[in-house]
């Protein structure tokens, strides 16, 4: 498969846009899934995954053919998701006025007497529960845990994708596993 992708990328570099269609087809589910796990929202995931493929196409000439294309593509996608997570934080300031409410701030949107988060979690199916626990991991652990266990990259490949030293990957995956263990212990 790597060889076929390599061939297709060569054609894309020569200006053959249709060859890129096969590349997208091959990676679409993986990249979409990665974005979804990072963002926890299908609409955002679709947006970012599309953006990742388009960026990869536009910058295809900066891709070094001696390296794995998947690594490069995942790096683009991961950076975009992390950017998106950073950008959306200001949307959740509690002091911000809620649009169209004439003076109500976000505090008014907080549920008070409803069920506690723990109870909420108990009501969910196991699948959803695991998914929400993954999403509650800090992004820098989440990306590594996802790449290692859902997309099954080696630690070295993860170090290439995230452009961080192998030692840092190991430290983060240890902490990520510990965090996940604490979250999933009672499931």
């Amino acid at each position: 498969m790597d060889l076929i992708i390599r061939d297709k990328i060569k054609q894309v570099k020569k200006g053959d846009q249709t060859a890129y269609e096969d590349v997208v087809m091959f990676f679409q589910d993986k990249i979409f899934q990665h974005c979804y796990r990072m963002l926890g929202n299908k609409h955002e995931a679709e947006d970012i995954a599309q953006e990742a493929f388009i960026r990869a196409y536009v910058n295809i000439h900066s891709y070094d053919e001696n390296r794995k294309f998947s690594t490069w593509l995942y790096r683009i996608a991961t950076n975009l998701t992390i950017d998106r997570i950073r950008k959306r934080k200001p949307d959740y300031y509690l002091d911000a006025e809620v649009k169209g409410t004439d003076g109500l701030d976000m505090y008014s949107q907080l549920a008070t007497n409803d069920r506690l988060p723990e109870e909420e979690v108990q009501g969910m199916e196991l699948q959803n529960q695991i998914e929400s626990e993954i999403l509650s991991l800090p992004p820098k652990y989440r990306s590594i845990i996802m790449l290692r266990y859902l997309e099954e990259f080696s630690l070295q490949e993860i170090s290439d994708i995230l452009d961080i030293p192998l030692g840092t990957v190991k430290t983060r995956i240890h902490r990520g596993r510990e965090a996940l263990r604490k979250k999933l212990r009672h499931v």
Partner: peptide, 30 residues
């Protein structure tokens, strides 16, 4: 617990890209 959390993690459902995902991208390419 560590091993179990990894097993649980791996058990999450695989999600698929929406329909027409590739087509949409091909149309958006410059």
């Amino acid at each position: 617990e560590l091993k179990r959390s990894i097993t649980l993690l791996k058990s999450v459902e695989q999600v698929k890209a929406p329909e027409n995902f590739t087509k949409d991208i091909m149309q958006k390419l410059p």
